[in-house]
Write a protein that binds this DNA or RNA. Structure first.
Lengths: 221, 221
DNA sequence: GCAAAAGTGTTCCAGATACACCCATGT
DNA sequence: ACATGGGTGTATCTGGAACACTTTTGC
């Protein structure tokens, strides 16, 4: 038992975990195994521990649910409406994470009945205020695609320009001219040819590229 | 006394309160009257109450320190390093506020020895991690000046284009071409002539403008 | 009439957009 | 040989940047 002179809220982290799969933007949801909202889908997350920072808490939860570490993770917003959790006052610090398409590996965590990747257009109703969190995460993702090199965080170690273009087209939901896209992306000087080619059908092989500084997300324009 | 099954952090809000005064960007600091960091300067802020939202807490603190309400206030970032406060685990949700130059009125709050407006180049050493908060607030302010109509939040009800230009020049710390600035700002169609003029010296009077939708901050470009 | 700030247009350049064909391969 | 996706260049448009003189007033 822990006792304080003044009331304290509980603090959680919730994470919007994005990846690209089957040419669709997908995010990870867990089916809640406990109260409240038992049986409803929700963002992965949990209570912070007293000896870890907020980002450490988010990375711990991320790894518990997906097994991945070292991926892009950024704080999104903090939600603290007094009644957002029916149990007690809970303030949640929301993060969003991007997982490269070749590192997806779901692990069912103990406190969830089920885990699943959902496309944006097949989302179930969510627990708490998680739909609001999702809306803000998506807004941020779309915005950052435009003014930063965030999209590279979805790419595997080697990729073709067409694959990269599909990432932009999938998230922005609009077609992009191939020549202009290539001119623009190469002018950023953030990627380089690996020298390898990908051949996967009756057509000319595609050059493979890699990101020069994989961890880095630069502001552009 | 308040008792919980698991340990809970304390949660505070801290506010970076900006205004423009004497052609300088200034922010409000308070001299701490209590422990920890007694006698040091810090951002205004305080513990959240259990029945108010985070933004309500920030607005309450803002009004306690300055007397103003209804001004621009936006969440900045949440800081939660385990040791950022020596007393106990304290997580702070930082906000920043912009006060129009004609509404500045300091009120000394009970928990502060002194209150003062500081220019960016005359800041004292600050308590806690408040310098980090300030750095992020300034970064956000400068960025938003470029891609939104945030600057209007500093303006009084009526203002001249030269005054508006000075706001940009002061915050961005660079000179702007008068003709290009006027062309750009008028093309936004966010301000309109009031019909009044300001005459204040041996020169041609300046037209006065007002913001069409004073509360609104639009994303531009 | 002079000093001081307000007001006003045009040229130039760079970056974004629009657009269509040839290339290398597997079957 | 043909079907498939990979790869490339030019003309145009648009928004930003550079730049100097006239206007109105108070003294």
């Amino acid at each position: 038992m822990f006792t304080y002179e003044y009331p304290h809220p509980a603090v959680t982290v919730d994470i919007v975990i994005y990846t690209l799969r089957d040419d669709e933007l997908k995010l990870l949801l867990i089916k809640r195994g406990g109260k409240p909202f038992k049986g409803k889908w929700a963002l992965p997350g949990g209570f912070i521990q007293m000896d870890e920072s907020l980002e450490e808490a988010a990375r711990r939860e991320l790894e518990e649910e997906t097994g991945v570490s070292g991926v892009f993770l950024e704080q999104l917003y903090t939600y603290g409406e007094p009644k957002r959790d029916p149990r007690e006052r809970v303030i949640t610090v929301a993060y969003y994470a991007l997982i490269p398409s070749d590192r997806v590996e779901i692990r069912a965590a103990s406190d969830a009945e089920a885990v699943g990747w959902f496309a944006m257009d097949e989302l179930p109703k969510l627990a708490f205020d998680h739909e609001e969190i999702l809306a803000m995460a998506h807004e941020r993702l779309v915005a950052k695609l435009d003014y930063s090199t965030l999209a590279f965080q979805f790419m595997p170690g080697e990729f073709t320009l067409t694959q990269l273009q599909q990432v932009y087209e999938t998230i922005l939901q609009q077609e992009i001219d191939k020549r202009n896209f290539r001119k623009w992306i190469l002018a950023l000087e953030c990627i380089e040819e690996t020298g390898n080619e990908q051949r996967d059908g009756p057509h000319r092989p595609a050059k493979l590229y890699r990101v020069k500084e994989p961890g880095k997300v630069e502001i552009i324009k």
